[in-house]
Structures are given as structure tokens and as C-alpha cells.
Amino acid sequence: MSLVEQEDAGALATTDAATDSRAARLMKRRSRIRLYEVAIWIAVIAAYFVLPSKMLILTEIAILALFAVSLDLVLGFAGIVSLGHAAFFGLGAYVAGLLALHFVAEPVTGLVVAGLITGLLGFLTSFLILRGSDLTRLMTTLGIGLMMAELANQMAWLTGGADGLSGFSLNPIFGVFEFDLFGKTGYVYCLVVLFLGVMIMRRIAFSPFGLSLKAIKSNAMRAGMIAVPARKRIVTAYTIAAVFAGVAGALLAQTTSFVSPDVLAFHRSADVLMVLTIGGTGYLYGGIFGAILFTLVKDALSIVTPQYWMFWIGLILVVLVLVGRERLNRWVDYLPKRMAGREDDR
């Protein structure tokens, strides 16, 4: 800290070496692992031991979190509002389900295949969201989401139509870890995948690529003027996001041994937007915080009013926006600073 003040006093007097090392340290500070990150991972691991009877809802949270984190790459980094992110989630679920039903019952293989196929869909559809305004992007993403849902509905011979896809069971993970009745293996499995997913996306977030995405979101015109090829970057980001959304969907199919047509429903796309909004966009962990809060609230609501919880979710959304997302998310802004402090300048 004292170094900063010294340099304020005489920027010209400092040697190159001192400035350089300071610049390097400043840059490293950005990608430093924060305390809250460690805390959240400890908490979710502790949940395994503390809440043995809540494995199913914990699994649900982990899956929703991965789904939301994948959307963050599109929304929080690239700044694209999507109303159809469930298209990838649902496709991943169906791919994993069909794979287990007809070909391979090994879960990790299923995840990889689901990720690859949804990634392909993401890549192809990304070209449709490149041009036009927010409005056309909303229309396109919503349209693609609905189209996938309709497709699943029409191809009943493959997907089971409105009845969904069932009757498959999964082999032990890598042939070793068997899924148990209480969902313990399932939770650990989802947690490991979530962790890997977040770590990969975290790496991406602090790369030049991640920085360029934020630049596009912040000021697309200027980004172009420092040679950022916005379209290429959006295609890549959208594809990566689709892969992880697909993996999240595949996890759902694998842990529940069931794929309902609901995986492609519009409300799922809306839910995940809401999750991310509650948790905060642009720093990845918002997806996890949001998933925890959202799932708990939704769970409580569906116990109180099984049929009309949608009303309350809607009300929460309206209030959330009127109160102001920024004001609500400010705690998240403070959190990293307060908890990570500025100890790194020492």
C-alpha cells in the first residue's frame, strides 16, 4: 500500500523494474483466489456431511449452479440477454438420457458426448445472435428454445414425447462409484463436475479472451477499435456456454434417471436468468449463490402453494427489478474486496 503512495508522489522517479513488478502484481491480484471462493467450496463439501438427508435438493442446486454459471459467460461477460438457454440444458439432458438408454451407460462418457453435441448446437446458433439488437437476440434465443421444445415434443418416437424419457439406469462412474439410493454419489458427482466447470470458466474469465468479452459488453465500438473481433469472440463464448449448459442438463438426466420435456420449457430459461440476477452477473460465483437462494425459495414456495408458486416467483422478479439489481448485488461487490482485502500489496 505504501508503494502506491510513493509512486503517486513521484511517478517519474520510480525505476522501470519497480513499475513493472508492480504492474505484474496488480494484474496477478485480479486473478487471485478470493476467500469467499474457498468458503463456498468448503460449505458445499460440508453440506455433504451435515445434511445427509438433503442430497436431492443439494444435487438440484449444484446442477442449477452449473447451468447458471454457463449463462454468466454469455450474459455477464459477453452481455447477451438470452431467453433460450434451456435449449442447451434440455438437449444435454436428452442426449445423456438417450445415450444411457441405447448405447453407453457410463456417466462421464455421457457428459462428454452431451457437452460436445450441445456445443455444436451452440456454435451453429451463435451465428444467429451476432447481428441485430437486444430485441432480435431475445427473439432468436426464445425462438430457438421453443423450437427445441417443439422438436422434443414432435419426435416422440425418440424422446418419449410428453411422457419423457425413462427406463434407463446408469453404470457406476468410471465403473467404480455406484449411484446410491440416497443420492450421495450423485451429489458428489455433480459437485466435482461443478467444481471443474467453474475452475475452467474461471480460467477463461481471467484470460485475454475473458477480458475481451467484458470489453465487448462494456463498449463494443471501442473494443472494435482496439482490434477485438467481437463476432468471433461471441461465437466462442456462446459455444463454451452451450457446452456447460449441456453438461448441466446431462447431470440432471443422469442423477434422476429421467428426462421430462420440462427440461426445455421456457420457464427454465427464465429461472436461470433470475438465478443469475439474484446472485449477480460477471463474476461466475453469482450462479452458485443465486442457485442456492433460488432453490431454497422455490422449494419453500412450492410447499406453501404447490400450484401457484409461479405467482410468487413473478412477484419476486418484479420487486427485484424495482428495488434495483445493482443495489441488491452490492454486497457481492463488497464481498471480494473486504474478504480478500489488499494484503497482496505487501
Binding site: 494484474m27 496477478k28 485480479r30 486473478s31 475473458g210 482496439i226
Partner: peptide
């Protein structure tokens, strides 16, 4: 870019000039 630091802003422009702006597996640091 209001949320960036000057250092990040300029680093980004340099990586783009050098053609490594698409790199997503190594941190800027």
C-alpha cells in the same frame, strides 16, 4: 471501459495486436 483498470485496458489492446487475444487458457497475468 469504465470497470477496467488502465492496465487491463492497455494489456487487452496489446494482446489483440499480438494476436493472442483469443487465448482462453492462460491468465492475463
Amino acid at each position: 471501459f469504465p470497470e477496467f483498470t488502465p492496465l487491463e485496458t492497455v494489456c487487452l489492446a496489446i494482446t489483440e495486436r499480438q494476436g493472442v487475444g483469443h487465448s482462453l487458457w492462460s491468465t492475463m497475468a
